[in-house]
Computed example of a mutant assay.
Amino acid sequence: MKQDLAGQWALVTGASSGFGVDFARQLAARGAKLVLVARRAEPMQALARELAGQYGTVSEVESADLSQSGAAHALKATLDARGIHIDILINNAGYGLWGPFLEQPLDRTLDMMQLNMVTLTELTHAFAADMAQRGRGKILLVSSIGAYQATPTYAAYAATKAYVLLFGEALHEELKTKGVTVTVLSPGISATSFLAVSGQRATLYQRLLMMQSAAVVRIGLRALDRGRASIVPGWLNALTAFGNRFMPRMVQRRVAYQLMKN
């Protein structure tokens, strides 16, 4: 693979599993130096050793609970102190909760909202400011196909991802004149730990549409390279998102409810 990112620093959140691991691998293959951030240090340290052995990648491992208020600014201060300036921000950390809204612990829902929206916003603000000042930079925000319609049993999660989609597309217009590219990646169900964390068993619909994590990441990075505002990976996922434009919202949410039932 072409070493087109040699010398650049890429920050990947949620780097201990799933998409985060594949973002790290694919960016390392292109020569990027990495800052890996997640709660669990051991998986990231193992990943850093793997990438050092395979690509000679320099990796900084930061164990941090990004759902905590102020965590984003603390991370930025740490990197500033080390003289690390981020060229590529992969805002990937996040999770979902499945089930009736009233049956989910409120503190868990609020924790999810903090990570999926507030921390993502804080990270974007902190690092985009530096990028705009330098006149270059790339930011990828991970949303979800759930952002395109209300999704019963994922009510709060889908709402957080709708925020990410609209936020990212708006920033794409605001920041492109400053040399900063913002791209939103909205995957459908993928072969990651998402379902296990959310508490849902895979439905027939999800098993039929499931994509491999590495393929989703590859599509997302290609869209970022091309300066696209947003991308829905997989033609069936893209068709679903596009088809919602022609479906009454009442029908959208009822269909989504049926598809999400175990």
Rank of each mutant, 00 (worst) to 15 (best):
R82A: 12
A74C: 06
N92F: 07
N91Q: 10
T78Y: 00
A71G: 05
W98H: 15
I90G: 03
S69A: 15
A71Q: 07
L106W: 00
A72D: 05
M112H: 05
L110P: 01
I90R: 03
L75M: 12
G96F: 02
M113R: 11
G70V: 11
G83F: 06
H85P: 00
E103S: 12
D80P: 02
P105L: 12
G94H: 07
L106Q: 13
L115D: 02
H85A: 15
T78Q: 11
T78A: 13
R82M: 10
A72S: 11
A93N: 06
G94Y: 03
L110T: 13
R108M: 10
W98F: 14
G96H: 05
D87W: 04
D80S: 14
N116E: 09
D111R: 14
I90T: 04
D107H: 11
Q114L: 07
G96Y: 02
S69H: 08
A74P: 00
L79W: 02
A81S: 10
P105C: 10
G83A: 08
L89E: 01
G94P: 02
G99C: 09
S69W: 00
A72C: 11
T109R: 08
I88K: 08
G83Y: 04
M117N: 03
S69D: 14
L115G: 05
G96W: 01
H85F: 07
L106V: 14
L110R: 13
I88Y: 03
R108A: 15
W98V: 14
D107T: 13
D107G: 09
I84Y: 00
W98T: 15
E103W: 00
A81I: 08
D87N: 09
A72L: 04
A77R: 12
N91I: 02
L115H: 04
Q104Y: 00
I84N: 01
H73N: 14
L106T: 13
R108K: 15
T78S: 14
R108E: 14
Q104N: 10
M112C: 14
L115W: 04
N116W: 07
T78P: 00
F101M: 13
A72M: 05
D111I: 09
A71D: 09
H73E: 15
L75C: 05
R82N: 08
M112I: 13
H73R: 15
F101T: 14
G83M: 08
L106C: 07
N91T: 12
N116L: 08
A81E: 03
A72Q: 06
G70T: 11
H85N: 15
L110N: 11
T78C: 03
